[in-house]
Amino acid sequence: MIELKGATKMYELGGEKIYALDHVDLKVDKGDFIAIVGPSGSGKSTLANIIGGLDVPDEGEVLVDDVNIAKVNDATISNYRNKKIGFIFQSFNLQPTYTALENVMIPLIFSGISLSQRKKRAFECLKAVGLEDRVSHMPNQLSGGQRQRVCIARALANNPEVIIADEPTGNLDSKKGIEIVELLKELNQKSGITLVVITHDPGVARQAKRVVEIKDGRIR
């Protein structure tokens, strides 16, 4: 479904080229559960961002259903993020002035859905993560685990094919972390959503169907 061919990303630092990704080849199949592991600065996030269409490689191809999204315009790649990808962040990145429901509605705004439909769909997503009684809560009225659930609900809003989670349990205690991973696993198993999880928690990596270890921008 998503295939990286020779994806390379580099930064200039003091006139020296540093490879964040060095000719990476990776195939993500439908229904897959990939854990990307590796030390910090190894290029895990860059890899996840390129898969999710937030970033494009300097060299190489990112084929999504045989279309190279590294070479398409902003509208197309934005539409790809909107419709096919759901992002989950370590620090949740919830809008502090929006309610849980409004936060979940954000991706739906950009897909041009009417307000009533947005509310309906956002409520469904919150229900799916077990937060139907926290709909009107502001993020600061929610616990860490609940916030991450709102974040997952937001990622689910547009029925994505892939969820990319960057350290989803990094800001949670181990008990809440396990709950979140269970929730993600359930989505993978029941709804067939592809999961790409960046983690350095071996416990999380162990749950994955496939572990991709990355170091110095290369897959080992």
Binding site: L54, S78, N79, R81, N82, N93, F110
Partner: peptide
């Protein structure tokens, strides 16, 4: 800025 990042991740184009 962060909010802009979230919106972009959620599918907002530059034009939006």
């Amino acid at each position: 800025i962060r909010e802009i990042g979230v919106m972009r991740a959620c599918g907002a184009t530059r034009a939006i």
